[in-house]
Design a protein around this nucleic acid. Structure first.
Lengths: 235, 235
DNA sequence: ATTACTAATCGCCGAGTAA
DNA sequence: TTTACTCGGCGATTAGTAA
């Protein structure tokens, strides 16, 4: 997923069009189109949404045009299924509402310092990232990540990060290659403020990465294998 | 809250208008208007929603008209706060999205049979309730509730029922008096299918009530003080 | 500055209908 | 029956502006 697509997918447009499409996505998800193709006529959809068959059909066409809905017309009966992008949109709404009623989510996680592949320095030096970090995290991070290995069982808990609001770092293209996006979450490592950074396409299963203004290894006097405690919070 | 108001509050109208108002409510809640009056100009609101100042202002007027927003204009700077009805609308959305990603919620709870005040029979005999039960639960319940006393600590867990989807029984007026609404949740009592019924204005703190097609005391051979296990599920 | 009215424009809705 | 187009009508939007 490139940088340019992201915001387009996240935002459904202006409120005027947004509401109808969201309502349609929501209804389709409840009908099961989030995991299975669903047979639903535009008439039925319109009835349930309180609009005409024509309007419902337009919603479907529009959703398809935006890459949020996959349709297959077989024998005049369309089968509808939501795309991963649509689920991302719905998940964003879920996050938003959950934050209102549950407050920001938090998690504590323990692990030990691990050595990375040294790529962090290369990536975090990319100007395309640096400007975004400066703008969204409020600082230019030290060009290198601190890797922390966690127990696989704890890793499963972190899957829930999908549901959290984070600070988006968008991907971009530079010098003919693609740099992927990432999401950052405010964190404390042994009490020291930093950010957990979760690349969209993560290479690791049981390693999480942190960025901070200073070099964390030096600042916290850490070496490979040292135990660390991380506190992660929703933005 | 009377029966007539309920649906009007729950539904924000057709998708066309619904989306804008929901987006505005959502934004206001995030700005803190759910618990504290918030100073926010219509220009700022419009910018954040991606509409003009005029449109944003209309949203505010419309929300106020629907009883979802309280405004106080002091010195040309309006202070906005959401009403309980608005929070109910937002909570409904939260429920809906949570169901998509978390699936139906469940809870197990233990308690013991308690004797009620005998009002159950009177209430459940009201035709205004009976027709709704028949339509929404799929049966006409035996006119009497089984009361189960739970430990106060368990009762706190049931507060979460607020966040669950349930089957609405609307309040109504008959014979000059008002009958309040309630929400029902599919449940099993010692494995027997029934419904937990939660009146909007509950008299009890640590007593929950069940309805079923048959008389539960007879069917399950229960007497006061008997231990029972209940499984409650989101609709 | 604000809020919020009026007027003109814009675009969504639904009826009719084709395929 | 479906899906999905055209088009007239009208409700929502924005610009301009008053208070």
């Amino acid at each position: 997923m490139t940088a340019a697509e992201r915001p387009a997918v996240r935002e459904l447009g202006r409120p005027r069009t947004r509401g109808e499409l969201l309502a349609a996505l929501q209804l389709l998800a409840h009908a099961g189109a989030d995991h299975t193709p669903v047979v639903l006529t535009s008439r039925e959809l319109g009835e349930r949404l309180g609009v005409s068959q024509q309007a419902a059909d337009r919603y479907l066409l529009e959703l398809e045009r935006r890459g949020l809905l996959a349709r297959s017309l077989a024998n005049r009966r369309q089968r509808l299924s939501l795309t991963p992008e649509a689920l991302e949109v719905l998940r964003g709404e879920y996050r938003s509402y959950r934050r209102i009623f549950e407050g920001p989510a938090r998690a504590s996680i323990a692990g030990e310092v691990a050595s990375g592949l040294g790529e962090g320095r290369y990536y975090l030096s990319q100007p395309g990232y640096v400007v975004q970090f400066a703008e969204r995290l409020g600082y230019e991070p030290y060009p290198g990540t601190l890797n922390v290995r966690i127990r696989p069982s704890e890793g499963r808990r972190l899957v829930a990060l999908r549901d959290w609001n984070g600070l988006r770092i968008d991907g971009f293209e530079a010098g003919g290659r693609t740099f992927g996006g990432a999401t950052c979450y405010p964190a404390k490592l042994n009490g020291h403020a930093c950010h957990l950074i979760r690349p969209d396409r993560s290479h690791y299963q049981d390693v999480i990465e942190f960025v901070a203004k200073d070099r964390l290894r030096t600042r916290l006097r850490l070496k490979d294998g040292d135990a660390v405690a991380a506190e992660i919070e929703e933005r």
